[in-house]
């Protein structure tokens, strides 16, 4: 049995990786972004209607128009794409994709909580919801209609995130949000076994944790946050930045921190942007996201029959949707082309 399963090991990923490669070919090419930057919103809507987003734009065109239509179509397409991955996978890949997509449950819970905290109307909240996790769009819609943050938390009492949510005692949501992120990664890391597929998934995940931690460290160091406040946001389980290293980095000044990060492989992606007097952190964040995408692309070539091509596709799709959203929002608020371009991950 062991020999047979070794001989047939690659087969369970052959189907899903072939499909993902087919889907990847339909992502927008990089050359498309400069063209989109020169267009107005109706032209962008028409152009994306000729791509994968056609069905979503057509179906939502009855209820929305302009920027709202594009935003809803992008969120819906992203959710449908992720759901398709769940539908076409079985066994180990299905399990890993399901667990990974729980990040959208966290995203949706955070979106609803923030919306309620700031008194946004349900329609406004639902614009940012991506129902790719285990919580269905219908459930999120119902939750978004509730009156208060406490009501939302009570409605989520059946979810695995309730132990964190019930600790909320009013006031700012940042602590709950940080704890939700930590819970998501802790659950994910705990649920992984020893199979080859799970080990590769773990590696991808730990790099993702490192990148999130570096982003948080940069943001909070620049804002002059205290060590304890910084530690509250950091997620354990990173690849290069273990807990000891994070504790050390959190205690440093901004200058010491940016010097110290030079020793890590992420530095090559951000070295040209990190300066003592940099105005915005966006270049650093874009650099880190590009690093993450390039890394995923590189390792998915090393292990073509594994979960990694699927992860790479999920990441690339999310980046495409984010880029389109940035372009549309940027155009809607009349930002200059250069500013929009700086925010795009390519």
């Amino acid at each position: 049995m062991g020999v047979l399963s070794k001989l047939t090991g690659g087969t369970r990923y052959a189907y899903i990786t072939a499909r993902v490669r087919g889907m990847k070919r339909r992502l927008l090419p990089k050359e498309m972004y400069p063209k989109l930057l020169n267009m107005e919103i109706p032209e962008i809507t028409r152009l994306i209607e000729e791509t994968e987003y056609k069905k979503d734009v057509d179906e939502l065109a009855r209820d929305y128009s302009g920027t709202d239509l594009v935003e809803h179509a992008l969120s819906r397409n992203l959710a449908m794409t992720y759901r398709k991955l769940l539908d076409i996978s079985t066994n180990e890949p299905h399990y890993l994709i399901t667990e990974y997509l729980r990040q959208w449950d966290i995203w949706n819970i955070k979106t609803v909580l923030r919306g309620k905290y700031y008194g946004a109307v349900p329609e406004e909240i639902l614009k940012s919801v991506v129902s790719a996790g285990q919580l269905r769009y219908r459930d999120i819609t119902e939750i978004a209609k509730l009156e208060s943050v406490d009501g939302v938390i009570a409605a989520l009492s059946h979810t695995p995130y309730y132990p964190v949510l019930r600790e909320y005692r009013g006031g700012m949501l940042s602590h709950v949000e940080n704890e939700l992120d930590k819970l998501y990664y802790a659950r994910l890391l705990e649920s992984l076994g020893d199979s080859e597929g799970e080990k590769l998934f773990l590696r991808f995940l730990r790099i993702e944790i490192d990148i999130k931690n570096i982003k948080n460290l940069f943001r909070l160091k620049r804002a002059g946050a205290e060590r304890d406040a910084i530690m509250d946001t950091l997620i354990p389980g990173g690849f290069e930045l273990g807990m000891d290293e994070l504790v050390r980095l959190a205690a440093m000044s901004y200058q010491e921190f940016s010097k110290s990060i030079e020793g890590h492989s992420y530095w090559q992606a951000i070295s040209s942007f990190v300066k003592d007097d940099m105005g915005s952190l966006r270049d650093v964040e874009v650099g880190l996201e590009s690093y993450s995408m390039n890394y995923a692309s590189r390792i998915s070539h090393y292990y073509p029959l594994s979960i990694l091509p699927v992860m790479e596709y999920m990441l690339s799709k999310k980046i495409e949707v984010d880029n389109l959203r940035i372009i549309v929002r940027g155009k809607a608020t009349s930002l200059s082309m250069d500013i929009i371009k700086r925010h795009l991950v390519m």
Partner: peptide
């Protein structure tokens, strides 16, 4: 075979 069916399903 599995990969070929997957690729055909997409294209």
């Amino acid at each position: 075979g599995a990969a070929a069916v997957g690729a055909m399903a997409e294209d």
